[in-house]
Computed example of a mutant assay.
Amino acid sequence: MRRIDAIGITIGVFAAGGLIYLVLQVVGIDGTDAGIWTQAVLVGGLVVWLLTYLFRVMSSNMTYNQQLNDYEEAVLQKRLAEMTPEELAQLQAEIEQEKADRTDK
């Protein structure tokens, strides 16, 4: 996320808070109560965002992890593409041997 994106999101959250406040006042809720409900909605939104962030951290579904996995896969694909047919056959034989060793245990 770029800095301008973070600034835009921040301004959007403040604008949403102001809009919620105005809507609650138009509906007929007192200014103090509208402020309390607006804060409750914004704090609730913050808690939900925090929970989704913690879930992404615990499940390793962060942007850095995705980029690292994509890079590792690209490197392996490049190495696989550069292998000769003899090397591919040898690699396949090694993989089959490891599978056989695992099933024997």
Rank of each mutant, 00 (worst) to 15 (best):
D33S: 09
D33E: 12
D33V: 01
A34R: 02
G35P: 00
I36Q: 09
I36R: 08
I36K: 07
W37E: 10
T38A: 00
T38I: 09
A40V: 07
A40Y: 09
A40M: 00
L42D: 11
L42T: 11
L42A: 12
V43P: 01
V43K: 02
V43Y: 07
V43Q: 04
V43M: 01
G44R: 01
G44L: 08
G44D: 06
G45T: 03
L46N: 04
V47N: 02
V47S: 06
V47W: 07
V47L: 05
V48Y: 02
V48K: 06
V48N: 02
W49T: 13
W49M: 06
L50R: 08
L50E: 14
L50G: 12
L51F: 09
T52N: 03
Y53S: 03
Y53F: 10
Y53R: 02
Y53P: 03
L54T: 15
F55G: 14
F55K: 14
F55H: 14
R56V: 12
R56P: 00
R56I: 10
M58G: 11
M58D: 11
S59I: 05
S59A: 06
S59F: 01
S60M: 05
S60P: 09
N61L: 00
N61S: 15
N61G: 12
M62W: 11
T63N: 05
T63K: 03
T63P: 00
T63V: 03
Y64R: 12
Q66K: 05
Q66Y: 10
L68N: 13
L68T: 15
L68D: 15
N69S: 13
D70P: 05
Y71S: 04
Y71F: 05
E72F: 11
E72Y: 10
E73L: 01
V75H: 11
L76I: 15
L76D: 14
L76H: 13
L76N: 13
L76R: 13
Q77C: 02
Q77H: 08
Q77V: 08
K78Y: 11
K78C: 09
L80S: 12
L80Y: 00
L80K: 01
A81F: 01
A81L: 05
E82P: 05
E82D: 10
E82C: 01
E82H: 04
M83E: 14
M83L: 12
M83V: 11
M83C: 12
T84F: 10
T84M: 00
P85E: 09
E87G: 10
E87W: 09
E87V: 06
L88M: 15
L88N: 13
A89K: 04
L91P: 08
Q92H: 12
Q92A: 12
A93I: 02
A93Y: 02
A93S: 08
E94L: 04
E94C: 00
E94H: 10
I95L: 14
I95C: 09
E96G: 09
Q97W: 09
E98Q: 13
E98C: 04
D101K: 06
R102Y: 14
T103N: 06
T103G: 01
D104G: 11
D104E: 15
K105M: 05
